[in-house]
Design a protein around this nucleic acid. Structure first.
Length: 230
DNA sequence: AAGAATTCCAACCGCGATGAG
DNA sequence: GCTCATCGCGGTTGGAATTCT
């Protein structure tokens, strides 16, 4: 999933970054900062253009970046912010601690665009209820993706397959208390008890990392950056 | 099993904004 | 005000991994 490394006619390396290059860049930026990306690769001993170094740092190496999959809260937030800001990915990413603009953009194109479109076509009251919950500060992490697929399915139609509903209920620890429900008789999301949704949302949100990314100190080294590279 | 199609992440490209001289 | 260098953003592409036929 990465571009094949190559060297162009000017001796500038392109394509995927090696671990050694990552280590060089990371060590250098952590020590000296990055007041001049264009000069940085020369000083750091990297055969890359400054732009490439900046991108690598911003999207993969800087402290605080999250590597794990997006949570539902994050996905819902992206959808919400995209409605407000459009394709202003840097503005959206600024509201998502630990995520880069490129990452958010990829997530949007890969997963969220379709879902957002589907959601906007929904007139289902139960989806409105979900939308309302999504604005709140509660977590839906307890609801696995299979369940959410069921909800997605219901966005354009209130009909839900029995398989989806089965997933929905079997995934929920509340199931044992819901044995009075005859699954076979449920054909619509509308028939799901409010208690079920309440349960899904009553788990407090996980703590996002809120520290600034650049929480490390770097000394001003203007004189260093003005030095010509030999 | 194998080739085709699709997915999706990392990286590149081009352009506008900004600031220094 | 003009030019040039640099940065940062958003759109696009390359290609390995995965899924489908």
């Amino acid at each position: 999933m990465v571009r094949t490394p190559s060297v162009d006619k000017n001796g500038i390396k392109r394509g995927a970054w090696s671990e050694e290059e990552d280590n060089k860049l990371k060590a250098f930026v952590e020590r000296f900062g990055h007041p001049n990306w264009r000069q940085l690769p020369k000083h750091a001993g990297l055969m890359r253009c400054g732009k490439s170094c900046r991108l690598r740092w911003m999207n993969h190496l800087r402290p605080g970046l999250k590597k794990e999959n997006y949570s539902l809260e994050e996905e819902e937030l992206i959808i919400k912010l995209h409605k407000e800001h459009g394709n202003r990915w840097s503005a959206i990413a600024a509201r998502l601690p630990g995520r880069s603009d490129n990452d958010v953009k990829n997530q949007w194109h890969a997963h969220l665009k379709k879902r957002a479109k589907t959601n906007t076509t929904s007139n289902s009251p139960i989806m409105e209820q979900f939308s309302e919950y999504s604005q709140s500060s509660y977590s839906m992490r307890e609801v696995p993706s299979a369940s959410l697929n069921a909800i997605d399915t219901s966005a354009t139609s209130t009909e839900v397959s029995s398989t989806d509903l089965s997933d929905l209920y079997s995934s929920c620890s509340l199931l044992n208390e819901m044995d009075w429900i005859e699954e076979d008789h449920i054909t619509s999301m509308e028939q799901l008890p409010a208690d079920f949704f309440n349960f899904c949302w009553t788990n407090p949100i996980d703590n996002f990392q809120t520290e600034p990314f650049d929480n490390f100190q770097t000394e001003p080294l203007d004189h260093f950056w003005r030095q010509p590279f030999f």
